[in-house]
Design a protein around this nucleic acid. Structure first.
Ligand SMILES: [Mn+2]
Ligand SMILES: [Mn+2]
Ligand SMILES: [Zn+2]
Ligand SMILES: [Zn+2]
Lengths: 142, 142
DNA sequence: ATTTCATATTAGATATATTCCAGTTTTATG
DNA sequence: CATAAAACTGGAATATATCTAATATGAAAT
């Protein structure tokens, strides 16, 4: 479905104006199941009107990440990838093709408060690495 | 101390020739306690002879990561950072200054093999985020 | 409905990070 | 020492992301 009112409200909640360009980025991330790069998002939202510039796409992604609505996943050597922070989940990143996949959430033990010291903990991110379903067999058979 | 023979052996073990440039990168990462960028490593190893080119520094870091001797930490929007894979540990990355800090290792539960499916799991990486000791107080008092 | 202005958008330039290239040098082996 | 695979080099090229400054717009207040 994709409730337009809900998106609008969540933008407002994050202190962000609801502009067509920003709405388009958020809506795209919410309905697209995957982890697109900024370039892919830019392209996708521009398939439909109105046109959004590259700078605006980057600006909006930055703002949405700051507002806690979107997560940015840094992948070594490649462009950053994004997903809407819907249900909590972990990630699996393929060594070979770089694909980012969702894994069901499970709780992660926090570090002992002694080891944290004066640091302020906001969140934790658990990334599993290896070969994805598509890459695993061909690597094994080589 | 930094055992030259040990470094040489670990390079050979990873199927890598021991060249002065590659040795310098590995030795630097082993004695330096921190998470330098490729540019910082390039600069550091060139303070002493022999001179290493930028391309070679990148090539060697890539090879060392592939050989499992070095870990690459991707930080969103910034240059990748590297550390020698000595003792297992987790990372804490500061939201504000981007600094990467080591946290004592503790075991992380693996995802159920049912959820992994045909994926081949190699390792897991746990990253904690928030404000580092230096950034925490000033943010709190603002 | 109109005014207002902080916020957002734009195209293009710029900055930063990383990889590629093709010719030369070096390492490790026998 | 001869050999061949691997590694090195500087510079060009590519990829990614941010900046700039002029213009436009959302939404709150009238
Ligand atoms: Mn995800
Ligand atoms: Mn580390
Ligand atoms: Zn894959
Ligand atoms: Zn900090």
């Amino acid at each position: 479905m994709l409730d337009a009112g809900a998106i609008k409200r969540s933008l407002k909640g994050g202190g962000l104006r609801c502009t067509p360009q920003r709405y388009a980025v958020m809506a795209f991330l919410m309905e697209y199941h995957g982890h697109p790069t900024a370039a892919e998002i830019y392209k996708a939202v521009n398939l439909v009107d109105p046109r959004s510039s590259r700078a605006t796409t980057y600006n909006n992604l930055r703002d949405l990440v700051r507002a806690g609505l979107v997560r940015e996943v840094a992948v070594e050597g490649r462009a950053a990838r994004f997903d809407a922070k819907g249900i909590r989940h972990h990630h699996f990143i393929c060594d070979r093709c770089g694909n980012v996949e969702d894994l069901a959430w499970f709780d992660v033990p926090r570090p002992a408060s002694r080891t944290l010291g004066k640091r302020v903990l906001r969140e934790c991110e658990l990334i599993f690495r290896g070969l994805c379903t598509k890459c695993a067999p061909r690597r094994a058979s080589r």
